[in-house]
Computed example of a mutant assay.
Amino acid sequence: MNKHNKPKFRIGDTVVVTIYGTVGKITEIKTIDGEFFYEVNDSEGLFKEKTLELLDTYEGYIFEQEQIDIEYKFLFGDLVIVRGYENDLFKIVGFRTEIWRYKEDAWEEVIYELMRVSDGEWLEANEEELTLIADVEQAEAFIRKYGLVFPGKNEEQPLLLQNSGEDKMVWIDQLLDYYNDNKLLYQLFSDEKYLKKMEYILEQLRQQSVQIVKEKE
Score class of each variant (00 low, 15 high):
Tyr38Gly: 06
Ser164Lys: 13
Glu86Phe: 05
Ser209Glu: 14
Ile201Ser: 02
Gly147Arg: 07
Glu156Met: 09
Asn182Met: 12
Glu124Ala: 03
Leu161Ser: 13
Glu121Tyr: 10
Ala125Cys: 02
Gly165Asn: 01
Gly147Pro: 08
Ile62Val: 14
Ile133Thr: 03
Lys73Gln: 12
Val82Leu: 06
Glu124Tyr: 05
Ile19Val: 12
Val117Thr: 14
Lys153Val: 09
Ile19Leu: 09
Lys30Gln: 07
Lys216Thr: 08
Gly34Ile: 04
Ser190Glu: 10
Trp171Asp: 02
Gln67Asn: 15
Val15Leu: 05
Arg96Gly: 12
Arg10Leu: 14
Tyr178Met: 08
Tyr200His: 11
Ile62Ser: 08
Gln204Arg: 03
Val170Leu: 09
Gly84Met: 02
Asp88Gln: 15
Ile133Trp: 10
Pro7Val: 01
Ile212Asn: 02
Ser43Lys: 15
Asn163Thr: 02
Leu114Met: 08
Val93Lys: 11
Glu128Leu: 02
Tyr61Met: 13
Asp56Glu: 15
Asp191Thr: 02
Tyr179Ala: 02
Leu176Lys: 10
Gly165Cys: 00
His4Leu: 04
Gly152Glu: 10
Glu140Val: 10
Val136Ala: 15
Tyr112Trp: 05
Val117Cys: 15
Val149Asn: 08
Val82Tyr: 05
Lys168Val: 05
Glu128Ala: 07
Val210Ser: 11
Gly21Phe: 04
Ala141Cys: 09
Tyr102Val: 04
Val213Pro: 01
Lys193Pro: 01
Ala125Ser: 01
Asn41Arg: 08
Tyr178Asp: 11
Lys196Ile: 03
Val40Cys: 05
Lys30Asn: 05
Gln174Thr: 02
Lys103Ala: 13
Ser209Thr: 11
Gln208Ala: 13
Leu55Lys: 15
